[in-house]
Amino acid sequence: MTAIPGRLAGKTALVTGGARGIGAAVCRRFAAEGARVAVADLDAGDCEALAASLGGGAFGLRLDVTSQNSIDAAMARVADIAGGIDILVNSAGIYDMQPVLEMSRERMARVFAVNVEGLVFTTQAVAAHMVRRGRGGRIINVASQAGRRGEALSVAYCASKAAVISITQSTALDLIRHGINVNAIAPGVVDTPMWDVVDGLFAKYEGLRPGEKKRQVGAAVPAGRFGTVEEQAAMAAFLASDDAAYIVAQCYNVDGGNVMS
C-alpha cells in the first residue's frame, strides 16, 4: 500500500466526507501521490486541520451535500483557489439502522438525501465544470458491500448504496464521451469510528455485548479481519490515476473476499 510519489502530480482532487474515515485516508493518499487536495466536510475546522497536515497546497472547506447552495459555493471556492477540479471522490455518507417495521419516511429520506441525492448533485456540479474545462477527469464513488447483498436491519442504507452502484454505471456511460471516467469502490467491513456506532446498534437490536458483533463480522471475512481505510484509499488512488484510463463504470470490491465477482 505504498504511495507512488508523483502519480497524481498536477491534479486537484475534491474529497467529500474528507475529514474522517475513508475520506480522510483518501485525502492523505492523494496528497502523498502529489495531488492538491480540497478536504470537504460539514465541519470546516476539521477540514482545515487535516488539510494543514497534508501540505502540497491542500485546503479545507465546508460542504453540505444536501444543500445545492453549499455545493455551488464549494465549487466556486475550489475553482478560485486551485483553478479547477480533476478528481472527485464522493465519500460523504451516513448510516442508519432500523428494522423494517420501525422504518420512518423521515429517516429514510435523510439517508437518501446524503447518500444518493448529495452524490448525484455533487457529481453533476463537478462534471459540468470538467466538461467546460475540456480536460476530462475522474469521479470515484464510495458505495458499500451492503449495496450488493443487503442487511436485514439496514434497509434504507443498503438501498442507498445499491443506488450508488447503479448511478455509477449510468453516469459513467453518459460522461465517458467527455473523457470523464466514473467508477466506484465497494468497501467491505472497514475499521472506522462508524463501525463502533454500528456495533452499538447491533447490541441494541440483537441483544449482543458491545464489541461482539464487530468480533463476529471480522472473523467471518475470508481474509480474517476488518479492512483498513488505507486499503480503500489505495484503490481510490489507482482509479484516480492514468493507470485506470480504460476502466469505466466498474465497482471494485475491496472487502477481503466477502463478495466474489
Results as ranks from 00 to 15, higher is better:
Gly211Glu: 13
Met235Glu: 00
Asp242Gln: 12
Ala186Gly: 06
Asp191Gln: 10
Gly179Val: 10
Ala240Leu: 03
Lys204Leu: 13
Tyr205Leu: 06
Met235Cys: 09
Trp195Tyr: 14
Asp196His: 11
Val217Leu: 11
Ala237Val: 02
Pro193Leu: 11
Glu230Gln: 08
Gly211Gln: 13
Ala233Ile: 01
Pro222Gln: 10
Glu212Asn: 00
Val197His: 07
Phe226Gly: 03
Phe226Glu: 04
Val229Asp: 02
Phe226Val: 06
Arg225Ala: 14
Val197Gly: 00
Ile247Gly: 01
Gly211Ala: 12
Lys213Ala: 12
Phe202His: 15
Gly179Pro: 11
Phe202Arg: 15
Gln232Thr: 12
Ala184Leu: 10
Arg209Thr: 14
Ala219Asp: 13
Gly200Ala: 12
Lys214Pro: 04
Ala233Gln: 00
Leu239Arg: 07
Ile247His: 03
Leu208Tyr: 06
Arg209Glu: 15
Asp199Val: 11
Asp196Thr: 15
Val229Phe: 00
Trp195Ser: 07
Val182Asp: 06
Val189Glu: 08
Glu231Asp: 02
Pro187Tyr: 13
Ser241Leu: 04
Arg225Asn: 11
Ala219Ile: 04
Phe226Trp: 15
His178Pro: 07
Val229Cys: 12
Thr192Asn: 07
Ile180Met: 10
Gly207Tyr: 09
Val182Asn: 06
Asp199Asn: 10
Gly224Tyr: 11
Tyr246Phe: 15
Thr192Tyr: 08
Thr228Trp: 01
Arg225Trp: 11
Glu230Arg: 01
Lys213Tyr: 13
Ala223Val: 14
Gln232Lys: 05
Val229Gln: 06
Arg215Met: 03
Ala234Phe: 00
Asp191Ile: 02
Glu206Met: 14
Gly218Asn: 07
Gly207Leu: 09
Glu206Phe: 08
Tyr205Lys: 09
Val189Cys: 08
Ala245Thr: 12
Val182Trp: 04
Arg209His: 09
Val229Ala: 13
Thr192Arg: 05
Asp242Phe: 04
Glu230Cys: 00
Arg225Glu: 10
Thr192Phe: 07
Val248Gln: 06
Ala233Cys: 01
Ala245Lys: 12
Ile185Glu: 06
Ala186Lys: 03
Gly224His: 13
Glu206Val: 04
Pro187Ile: 13
Ile247Cys: 12
Val248Met: 06
Ile247Thr: 13
Glu212Gly: 01
Val217Pro: 00
Met194Gly: 04
Phe202Val: 11
Ala233Pro: 00
Asp196Glu: 15
Tyr246Trp: 15
Gln216Cys: 01
Asp242Lys: 11
Arg177Gln: 14
Ile185Cys: 08
Lys213Thr: 02
Val198Leu: 14
